[in-house]
C-alpha cells in the first residue's frame, strides 16, 4: 500500500450544455478518513460523485479531461503525497475517465435514488449483483443480511425507506471496497433510522479503516461523523478543512461598531453584520483577529458557531456588510 490519498481531485470542471455546474473543484481524501461534501440542493454534489465513479465525463481542459481514453486498460498511477498532481482525478490510483469499470469494481457506491429493481426480492438482487464484482464475499453478504435484519424473500418495493438504505449499504459493502461513496444516504430517513444508519457507518466502515466519501445537507448529522468537510457552493469548493479545525478557526466576533475599523489586518471575513451599536464579523481566521483586537485593547466578544452557522457564513455571508433582501445571492437562496 502506498501512502497516497485514496481520492484526489484537481481542477475539475463540468458543464451541462452551457451551464457550468462545477468550476475548478479540488480536494483530497486520505485513506481511512470520512469526508463529507456539503452543499445546498443543486450545488453540484451528485455531479461530483458521479464524476468520481466515471459515470460522467469532466470537461477537458489542458490534459485534465479524458482525451486519450483507452477503454479497458488499467493503469494505476503510483503517486506520493508530496508530488504535486497536475489536474484530473484519481480514485485508488485509477483515473475514473479511463478506468471507469475498474473504479466501480473497487468502490462501494450508494446512489441517492435507489429504487433499483423493485420487483426483485432481497435474495435475488444480492445474487444478481455478485457476479459484477470479482471480490464479492457471499459470507459477508449473508452476515449483513442478518445484521441488517433484512428478510431474503421480501420484494424490494415492499421494503421501508430505512431497509432500502441498508440493502443499498449491503450491496455497496459486500465486495469489500476500500473506498465507499454515498450520495446523501440520510435523505428521507427519520431520526431513528438516521441514527441507525450512522451507527452502521461507524461499525462497518469507520471502525474497519474504510475511506468514506459522502454528500449531505444535514449538517448537524455530519459533524459527529465526518473527519473532514468541504463546502460546495454553486460549483466551487469554498473551504475544505478538518471538522474540528473549521470550528476552531471560524468564529463570530462582536464589538462596538466604532471599534470595527481597528481590525486592520488583511483578514478573511466571511460575513459582516453592521449594527447601530454593535458590529458582528464572522471570519475564517478568527484566532488572528482575536490577537489583534487584544493588542489594540478593543472590547469584544467571541461567539462560537455551529456547523449550520459556519455553512451559512460561507454560502450567503457578505464580507462587505451589504446583506440585503434584494441580494441576488439571497434570492437564489430563497428560490
Amino acid at each position: 500500500m502506498t501512502d497516497s490519498p485514496d481520492i484526489i481531485v484537481r481542477g475539475l470542471s463540468k458543464s451541462f450544455g452551457r451551464k457550468r455546474v462545477l468550476e475548478d473543484v479540488s480536494f483530497t481524501v486520505e485513506r481511512g478518513r470520512t469526508f463529507a461534501l456539503l452543499g445546498r440542493n443543486g450545488a453540484g454534489k451528485t455531479t461530483t460523485l458521479r464524476l468520481l465513479l466515471g459515470l460522467l465525463k469532466p470537461d477537458s481542459s489542458g490534459g485534465s479531461g479524458c482525451g486519450s481514453a483507452e477503454p479497458g486498460s488499467v493503469t494505476p498511477v503510483p503517486m506520493s503525497k508530496h508530488e504535486p498532481f497536475p489536474a484530473g482525478m484519481r480514485v485508488l490510483g485509477l483515473d475514473p475517465c479511463k478506468d471507469a469499470i475498474e473504479v466501480r469494481r473497487r468502490v462501494g457506491y450508494l446512489a441517492e435514488d435507489q429504487r433499483m429493481f423493485s420487483w426483485m426480492t432481497v435474495e435475488q438482487i444480492t445474487r444478481f449483483m455478485a457476479p459484477f464484482y470479482p471480490t464479492w464475499d457471499t459470507n459477508l453478504a449473508n452476515r449483513y443480511l442478518q445484521q441488517f435484519e433484512l428478510s431474503r424473500s421480501t420484494k424490494i418495493k415492499h421494503l421501508s425507506k430505512g431497509q432500502t438504505v441498508r440493502l443499498g449499504l449491503l450491496l455497496a459493502l459486500a465486495h469489500r471496497p476500500q473506498v465507499i461513496i454515498l450520495d446523501d444516504p440520510a435523505l428521507g430517513l427519520d431520526p431513528i433510522m438516521r441514527k441507525q444508519f450512522n451507527r452502521d457507518l461507524i461499525m462497518h466502515l469507520q471502525s474497519e479503516g474504510r475511506t468514506v466519501f459522502y454528500s449531505s445537507h444535514l449538517l448537524y448529522e455530519v459533524e459527529p461523523i465526518a473527519d473532514q468537510v468541504a463546502i460546495l457552493d454553486r460549483g466551487r469548493i469554498v473551504i475544505q478543512q478538518d471538522t474540528e479545525t473549521l470550528r476552531h478557526n471560524v468564529k463570530q466576533l462582536r464589538m462596538a461598531s466604532g471599534d470595527y475599523h481597528k481590525l486592520t489586518l488583511p483578514l478573511n471575513k466571511l460575513d459582516v453584520l453592521p449594527g447601530p451599536t454593535e458590529t458582528a464579523v464572522t471570519l475564517s481566521d478568527a484566532p488572528q483577529a482575536i490577537e489583534q483586537l487584544r493588542q489594540n485593547g478593543v472590547t469584544f466578544r467571541v461567539v462560537d458557531l455551529n456547523l449550520d452557522e459556519i455553512f451559512e457564513a460561507y454560502v450567503i455571508g457578505r464580507p462587505d456588510g451589504q446583506r440585503h433582501a434584494d441580494d441576488p445571492k439571497l434570492q437564489e437562496a430563497a428560490a
Binding site: 441514527k195 451507527r199 461507524i202 469507520q206 459527529p224 461523523i225 473527519d227
Partner: peptide, 11 residues
Amino acid sequence: LAEMLTVNPNT
C-alpha cells in the same frame, strides 16, 4: 463509545 454515542471513532 463510538457506537454508543454514534460519533466517529477518530474523535
